[in-house]
Protein backbone atom coordinates (compact mmCIF):
# COMPACT_ATOMS: atom_id res chain seq x y z
CA UNK A 1 0.00 0.00 0.00
CA UNK A 2 3.04 2.23 0.38
CA UNK A 3 3.22 2.02 -3.39
CA UNK A 4 0.01 4.01 -3.86
CA UNK A 5 1.34 6.72 -1.60
CA UNK A 6 4.48 6.80 -3.70
CA UNK A 7 2.40 7.17 -6.86
CA UNK A 8 0.44 10.02 -5.28
CA UNK A 9 3.68 11.72 -4.26
CA UNK A 10 5.00 11.41 -7.81
CA UNK A 11 1.77 12.85 -9.18
CA UNK A 12 2.07 15.80 -6.80
CA UNK A 13 5.65 16.21 -7.96
CA UNK A 14 4.59 16.19 -11.64
CA UNK A 15 1.90 18.78 -10.96
CA UNK A 16 4.21 21.06 -8.99
CA UNK A 17 6.93 20.75 -11.62
CA UNK A 18 4.49 21.75 -14.35
CA UNK A 19 3.28 24.76 -12.37
CA UNK A 20 6.80 25.91 -11.58
CA UNK A 21 8.56 25.31 -14.87
CA UNK A 22 6.04 25.63 -17.70
CA UNK A 23 5.67 28.92 -19.48
CA UNK A 24 2.41 28.14 -21.26
CA UNK A 25 -0.69 29.24 -19.36
CA UNK A 26 -2.73 26.21 -20.35
CA UNK A 27 0.06 23.85 -19.32
CA UNK A 28 0.06 25.49 -15.91
CA UNK A 29 -3.67 24.94 -15.63
CA UNK A 30 -3.18 21.30 -16.62
CA UNK A 31 -0.51 21.01 -13.93
CA UNK A 32 -2.91 22.38 -11.33
CA UNK A 33 -5.52 19.93 -12.49
CA UNK A 34 -3.11 17.02 -11.98
CA UNK A 35 -2.11 18.34 -8.56
CA UNK A 36 -5.71 18.62 -7.42
CA UNK A 37 -6.59 15.18 -8.79
CA UNK A 38 -3.66 13.71 -6.88
CA UNK A 39 -4.91 15.25 -3.65
CA UNK A 40 -8.40 13.90 -4.25
CA UNK A 41 -6.95 10.48 -4.98
CA UNK A 42 -5.19 10.78 -1.65
CA UNK A 43 -8.51 11.49 0.05
CA UNK A 44 -10.18 8.48 -1.52
CA UNK A 45 -7.25 6.18 -0.96
CA UNK A 46 -6.98 7.13 2.70
CA UNK A 47 -10.64 6.24 3.18
CA UNK A 48 -10.07 2.68 1.99
CA UNK A 49 -10.07 -0.19 4.47
CA UNK A 50 -9.02 -3.61 3.20
CA UNK A 51 -12.20 -5.65 2.88
CA UNK A 52 -14.46 -2.69 3.42
CA UNK A 53 -17.45 -1.99 1.20
CA UNK A 54 -19.26 1.04 -0.14
CA UNK A 55 -20.74 3.10 2.72
CA UNK A 56 -24.31 2.44 1.65
CA UNK A 57 -25.83 0.67 4.59
CA UNK A 58 -28.48 -1.70 3.33
CA UNK A 59 -27.33 -5.31 3.50
CA UNK A 60 -25.65 -7.09 6.33
CA UNK A 61 -22.14 -5.88 5.70
CA UNK A 62 -20.01 -5.27 8.70
CA UNK A 63 -17.01 -3.32 7.52
CA UNK A 64 -17.38 -0.13 5.54
CA UNK A 65 -14.83 2.24 4.08
CA UNK A 66 -14.54 5.62 5.78
CA UNK A 67 -17.26 7.90 4.36
CA UNK A 68 -15.87 11.17 5.72
CA UNK A 69 -12.88 11.62 3.38
CA UNK A 70 -15.15 10.69 0.46
CA UNK A 71 -17.59 13.43 1.39
CA UNK A 72 -14.72 15.88 1.80
CA UNK A 73 -13.29 14.75 -1.54
CA UNK A 74 -16.59 15.58 -3.26
CA UNK A 75 -16.45 19.07 -1.80
CA UNK A 76 -12.85 19.44 -2.90
CA UNK A 77 -13.63 18.25 -6.46
CA UNK A 78 -16.34 20.88 -6.84
CA UNK A 79 -14.16 23.66 -5.47
CA UNK A 80 -11.28 22.57 -7.71
CA UNK A 81 -13.51 22.54 -10.78
CA UNK A 82 -14.70 26.06 -10.00
CA UNK A 83 -11.18 27.43 -9.76
CA UNK A 84 -10.18 25.60 -12.95
CA UNK A 85 -13.13 27.14 -14.77
CA UNK A 86 -12.18 30.60 -13.54
CA UNK A 87 -8.59 30.04 -14.66
CA UNK A 88 -9.66 28.97 -18.13
CA UNK A 89 -11.84 32.07 -18.41
CA UNK A 90 -8.82 34.16 -17.50
CA UNK A 91 -6.67 32.31 -20.04
CA UNK A 92 -9.17 33.13 -22.81
CA UNK A 93 -9.27 36.79 -21.80
CA UNK A 94 -5.48 36.98 -21.56
CA UNK A 95 -5.16 35.48 -25.02
CA UNK A 96 -7.61 38.06 -26.38
CA UNK A 97 -5.55 40.91 -24.97
CA UNK A 98 -2.03 39.71 -25.67
CA UNK A 99 -2.44 37.14 -28.44
CA UNK A 100 -0.12 34.69 -26.75
CA UNK A 101 -0.24 32.08 -24.04
CA UNK A 102 3.40 32.42 -23.08
CA UNK A 103 3.72 33.95 -19.64
CA UNK A 104 7.13 35.55 -20.28
CA UNK A 105 5.91 37.27 -23.44
CA UNK A 106 2.83 38.59 -21.63
CA UNK A 107 5.08 40.07 -18.99
CA UNK A 108 7.33 41.60 -21.65
CA UNK A 109 4.42 43.23 -23.42
CA UNK A 110 3.33 44.93 -20.23
CA UNK A 111 6.84 46.27 -19.79
Amino acid sequence: MELTYLVIAILICVGLYAIASKRNLLKIVIGINILESAVIFLFVFSSYRPGGTVPIISGNHELFVDPVPQALALTAIVIGASTTALMLGLVIELYKRYDTLNITEIRKMRG
Partner: peptide
Protein backbone atom coordinates in the same frame (compact mmCIF):
# COMPACT_ATOMS: atom_id res chain seq x y z
CA UNK B 1 -11.76 -0.28 -6.80
CA UNK B 2 -11.45 1.73 -3.63
CA UNK B 3 -15.21 1.54 -2.96
CA UNK B 4 -15.98 5.18 -3.60
CA UNK B 5 -18.78 5.24 -6.20
CA UNK B 6 -19.93 8.74 -5.22
CA UNK B 7 -16.54 10.24 -5.86
CA UNK B 8 -16.15 8.16 -9.01
CA UNK B 9 -19.40 9.51 -10.44
CA UNK B 10 -18.47 13.06 -9.56
CA UNK B 11 -15.04 12.57 -11.10
CA UNK B 12 -16.55 11.26 -14.36
CA UNK B 13 -18.98 14.09 -14.81
CA UNK B 14 -16.87 16.93 -13.46
CA UNK B 15 -13.26 16.15 -14.32
CA UNK B 16 -13.89 13.86 -17.25
CA UNK B 17 -16.82 15.76 -18.70
CA UNK B 18 -17.14 19.42 -17.80
CA UNK B 19 -13.50 20.29 -17.22
Amino acid sequence: FLQAPDVALAEIVISGGIT
